[in-house]
């Protein structure tokens, strides 16, 4: 009788499970316009980083005789004062800039989860110690620290790896505080207490009972950190902390500034990387708001079109 009530058993679902998951992710990503816009922008830059270099017919560091040329058919985005192709620099630069931002954001999120959840769950002395560390990093100023390191670090250690490490350690504290607060409210929930009273291991409670319930906060915090790391990566490189012989968005701006592109009217040199950075950060910010909206239905705003359609349906 019960089988008649439930014609779809899990076994029957399995062959199409993959399709359902893809369908669900697509549905989730298009659930509001902010999410859709953010996803489109992010996907655009990821594709640009992967396939862009195939379109560039020059190495980003190769010199040519076309010095400081405005955009043309030969050089889509013009050239630098040394004759390097700006389009090539931009698409190759996207790879490093995205990768540095992404790895730093991942590392930072792992730190956030460890510090936030452990201090929130255990409380007491553990919380005091971990909170102290969080607070120290919270007041550690990221950019001035970067400038200080940039002026002392030898040239051979400057580069993406140094920046990734620096970004990881200067970006995690804020998110850790947010996750700590979330964990504090979770630890007294009944299902956590019942897991505890049924003898569950503390680490398992933290990572299998609490973490899945605050995963939307973690996701949102990850995207927020990503915005920061992308922007700060460009800032660090602009300040000369990067490897200036590599082409990234930040070093492009660094060279444009040091060769006085602005004074010489070379707008094609500094506008493309600037636009890329701001567009990517805007896209990520949209994504972040979109996640918030999905996770917190109270923030949802219904579009006028949908409201009108629903009215029509009601009338019909």
């Amino acid at each position: 009788m019960a089988t008649a009530l439930q014609p779809v058993t899990p076994e029957q679902q399995n062959p199409v499970a993959g399709i359902t998951i893809v369908h669900n992710i697509l549905k989730w990503l298009t659930s509001n316009w902010k999410m859709t816009t953010g996803t489109c922008i992010l996907v655009f830059f990821i594709l640009m980083a992967i396939f862009g270099p195939l379109l560039a017919h020059m190495s980003p560091t190769a010199f040519s005789n076309d010095l400081f040329q405005p955009p043309s058919a030969a050089h889509w985005l013009g050239t630098t004062s040394k004759g390097e192709d700006i389009f090539a620099q931009l698409v190759y630069g996207a790879r490093i800039s995205l990768l540095v931002g992404f790895i730093a954001a991942i590392g930072s999120t792992i730190l956030q989860i460890l510090f936030g959840l452990l201090s929130g769950y255990f409380g007491g002395l553990v919380d005091n110690i971990l909170s102290f560390v969080i607070n120290v990093f919270l007041i550690l100023p990221g950019l001035p620290l970067g400038i200080a390191i940039a002026s002392f670090a030898p040239n051979n250690i400057k580069g993406p790896i140094l920046i990734t490490i620096l970004l990881t350690f200067t970006s995690w504290s804020y998110g850790a505080r947010v996750l700590r607060a979330q964990t504090l409210s979770m630890r007294s929930r009944d299902f956590v207490e019942s897991a505890r009273s049924s003898g569950e291991w503390p680490l398992r409670i933290i990572f299998f009972e609490i973490l899945p319930n605050i995963i939307s906060v973690v996701a949102s915090s990850f995207v927020g950190t990503f915005v920061y790391t992308i922007g700060a990566d460009v800032a660090f490189e602009f300040l000369g902390l990067g490897n200036v012989s590599q082409s990234t968005w930040g070093t492009m701006l660094f060279w444009a500034q040091s060769q006085q592109a602005m004074l010489a009217g070379g707008w094609w040199w500094f506008i493309p990387p600037g636009v890329c950075v701001s567009l990517l950060c805007a896209g990520l910010a949209f994504l972040n708001n979109g996640i918030d909206e999905v996770a917190n239905p109270r923030l949802r705003v219904e579009s006028k079109r949908k409201l009108a359609r629903r009215k029509k349906e009601v009338v019909a």
């Binding site: 929930r189 009944d190 299902f191 207490e193 019942s194 897991a195 009273s197 049924s198 003898g199 009972e209 899945p212 319930n213």
Partner: peptide
């Protein structure tokens, strides 16, 4: 705790939704 177990009041919050 292996010998003494607790059943909570509210079954809507004592099971983890995930």
């Amino acid at each position: 705790r292996r010998h003494i177990q607790l059943v909570f009041q509210d079954p809507f919050s004592s099971l983890n939704p995930v």
